[in-house]
């Protein structure tokens, strides 16, 4: 019960951090490398959180929010990775990969949220034309609240589902699979470092 409460608090906290990701401030406090140890600290596993956070950041660095592109969500990935360790009791490596998957899938949720806000414009324009007092601040506050609530709920539900699946699969022998995921996880820093290296190399040696 205590763990569920902790997971709920962590999800709400991650939902708040998520606002920094796109909607408010963008000071980078929502970066996975910081959110990971923060959420890990809340759940008693700061070291695992830090590792999951940095590796998520390295892997997700490839995606840049240029134009109307909705990139996969690194904060969601890191949060679900940490809760996968703390709540579901998964090995760090498996939790990391589930987090990566969850962050990728969250891109679709974010896309729909943005689509839903499109519907507001006609209403706001009609209000302005009719001379009504436009309360853009309240609309945007609602948008922030929705974004935070949706991402928090997504993290909580995805982690809950992971936890449930882990409990159901506890009777199965998954050692080989977990060893394989440990091995794959040990290769992730090199995948990330390569992305980092070639990103800057391309910029420096760009032709023209």
């Amino acid at each position: 019960m205590m763990m569920i409460l902790k997971a709920l608090i962590s999800s709400l906290f991650a939902g708040l951090l998520e606002l920094d990701n796109v909607q408010a401030g963008q000071f980078l406090i929502s970066r996975p490398a910081l959110a990971g140890p923060l959420l890990g600290w809340l759940n008693g596993c700061p070291l695992e959180g830090a590792k999951i956070g940095l590796l998520t950041e390295l892997i997700y660095m490839e995606f840049i929010p240029i134009g109307g592109v909705v990139p996969p969500n690194g904060l969601v990935a890191a949060a679900i990775g940490v809760l996968g360790v703390a709540w579901s009791g998964l090995p760090e490596s498996a939790a990391f990969f589930f987090g990566i998957l969850a962050g990728f899938l969250y891109g679709g949720v974010e896309y729909r949220l943005r689509g839903a806000r499109t519907g507001w414009i006609t209403g706001i324009e009609a209000e302005v034309k009719n001379g009504a007092v436009v309360r853009l601040g309240s609309r945007l506050a609602g948008s922030l609240l929705t974004e935070s609530a949706v991402s928090g709920s997504y993290i909580f539900l995805f982690s809950g589902l992971l936890s449930l699946s882990a409990a159901l699969a506890s009777g199965l022998d998954l050692k080989t699979l977990f060893r394989a995921s440990d091995f794959a996880y040990s290769l992730m820093p090199w995948l990330g470092l390569s992305g980092l290296y070639f990103r800057f190399r391309t910029q420096v040696y760009k032709k023209g």
């Binding site: 796109v22 909607q23 408010a24 401030g25 943005r114 507001w120 945007l140 948008s143 922030l144």
Partner: peptide, 9 residues
């Protein structure tokens, strides 16, 4: 700081 708060498609 809230310029992206109402980001829509």
């Amino acid at each position: 700081f809230f310029i992206q708060a109402g980001w829509n498609s």
